[in-house]
């Protein structure tokens, strides 16, 4: 038994060195060389300073910006230190109430728009950090943003298209619009 325990301890140490030290260091080394931007958080740099990440959504409720997915993180939305969804069940009245409030908020800043709201714009994302909305959710907001910024709808629409990614390789996932990229472009940054 003593010999077995000794073998087990040494084996655990050796395996820790291989899988817990060597392996992550090799991956870090190679990733930093081959994919430096991705491995360091896909940061958007302006004048050498990061001003956001293309992968991590920020919160917008100013009507002149495109709004992203609702975020259930606390204490503030899109808190990247505490990623989480709402975990509200489908029949929970709190979910229906939250969706109602979001519809009202969208309509309050865009009174003329009576179209049904695309579902992703009124439901909380899984991570609370979703950087993207569906093309439908962007289209829903185009007239509002154009009006408040004094731009033509076609101008705004072409900026939306610039921030849109199709299905990957044409066959995986969903088409989507990056909200932070789009809003930065609108601000001329």
């Amino acid at each position: 038994m003593g010999k077995l325990i000794r073998s087990a301890i040494v084996m655990l140490l050796l395996m820790t060195v291989i899988t817990g030290v060597a392996y992550p260091l090799v991956v870090t080394g190679v990733a930093q060389v081959l994919f430096p931007s991705q491995a360091n958080g896909s940061l958007i740099d302006r004048e050498g300073k990061p001003i956001g990440s293309t992968l991590i959504g920020q919160s917008f409720d100013d009507p002149k910006y495109f709004w992203g997915r609702p975020s259930a993180t606390s204490p503030q939305p899109n808190n990247a230190l505490s990623s989480s969804g709402s975990n509200l069940g489908p029949t929970n009245p709190a979910l229906t109430d939250a969706v109602k409030q979001r519809i009202e908020a969208l309509r309050a800043v865009d009174p003329g728009n009576t179209a049904a709201v695309p579902v992703d714009l009124v439901t909380a994302s899984a991570s609370g950090l979703d950087p993207e909305i569906s093309p439908a959710a962007a289209a829903y907001q185009v007239s509002r943003v154009a009006r408040l910024r004094g731009m033509s709808e076609s101008q705004v629409r072409s900026m939306v298209i610039m921030a849109t990614t199709g299905r990957q390789f044409g066959m995986l996932g969903e088409a989507r619009v990056n909200v932070l990229k789009l809003n930065l472009a609108l601000d001329g940054r």
Binding site: A116, S125, G173, A175
Partner: peptide, 20 residues
Amino acid sequence: VDQQASAFQAGGNMEGKETR
């Protein structure tokens, strides 16, 4: 709320799901 799938959105039950 528009939960219908189309060329422009996945639709369906998007609570707790990611757009991509």
